[in-house]
């Protein structure tokens, strides 16, 4: 699906990702954990085309895509849900989905139906400006929008950060529903979510992947995971 080899990323002269290798198979849900400043968001931004790597390769379905612009990657099926939960706040909830549908070449009604299926309350908020949604509802809208069209790879940055427990469970339910159907790389600090959803975990520290956890006992070992945060 995606194969990242010897990736190096820098902000000016400051290198923030060093010789990073990562793979993702079709339908796999991979989580990236690590302390603040480990380079997790930088990695997602680089895969999404927001940053150009200084070295290394990102190969998506056999095609090198490193440094391609975000719109081209989006047309290849990449979807990036950023950490800041920014929706198009002056547009209605429905228009947010419409915009994604037009971009992905999917009929608006189909896209809207899919979004409502993952979170029925969206139907209630249909005409509301998206800026008036709560943080959790915005995150759900963003995930719903990312699922419009035919997403091949979801890149989600800290989907539960700053959200109430009840909303976190809602997001867990949505992510769980996506398992096996779409490949995803998710940056997450909430270990209860990670433990229940991860097929594999990469641990990042100071711009490097220091551990790959792919056995079920390791994935569910809270005490061990806590050490990496």
């Amino acid at each position: 699906m995606i194969d990242i080899r010897h990736l190096e990323v820098a902000y000016g002269h400051a290198r923030v990702i060093h010789d990073l290798n990562l793979t993702l198979s079709p339908g796999e849900m991979v989580f990236i954990v690590g302390r603040n400043g480990a380079g997790k968001t930088t990695l997602l931004k680089t895969i999404a085309g927001l940053l150009k790597p200084t070295q290394g390769e990102i190969v998506f379905e056999g095609r090198p895509v490193a440094g391609e612009p975000p719109d081209k990657l989006a047309r290849s099926g990449f979807r990036f849900v950023a950490q800041d939960k920014k929706v198009f706040s002056s547009l209605s909830v429905r228009s947010n989905i419409e915009l994604a549908a037009h971009g992905a070449g999917e009929p608006v009604e189909v896209a809207w139906k899919k979004a409502v299926e993952i979170y029925p309350k969206l139907a209630e908020f249909r005409a509301l400006p998206a800026g008036r949604l709560s943080g959790g509802q915005r995150e759900i809208l963003l995930i719903g929008r990312a699922l419009v069209g035919n997403p091949r790879l979801l890149l989600i940055d800290e989907p539960t950060e700053g959200l109430a427990a009840i909303v976190i469970e809602e997001i867990f339910r949505i992510l769980k529903g996506m398992r096996q159907t779409v490949s995803a790389i998710i940056v997450e600090q909430n270990l209860s979510i990670v433990k229940r959803l991860a097929d594999r975990i990469y641990v990042m520290k100071e711009g490097r992947i220091i551990r790959e956890i792919n056995d079920q006992s390791g994935i569910t070992d809270s005490a061990r995971l806590e050490n990496y945060l």
Partner: peptide, 24 residues
């Protein structure tokens, strides 16, 4: 129109519009 919605969205956050696959 959808075109108008897109133009407003560019004003709000052009980067995010690119993430949706548009050549802004």
């Amino acid at each position: 129109s959808p075109y108008g919605i897109l133009v407003r969205s560019i004003k709000e956050n052009e980067q995010r519009v690119k993430f949706l696959g548009y050549n802004t």
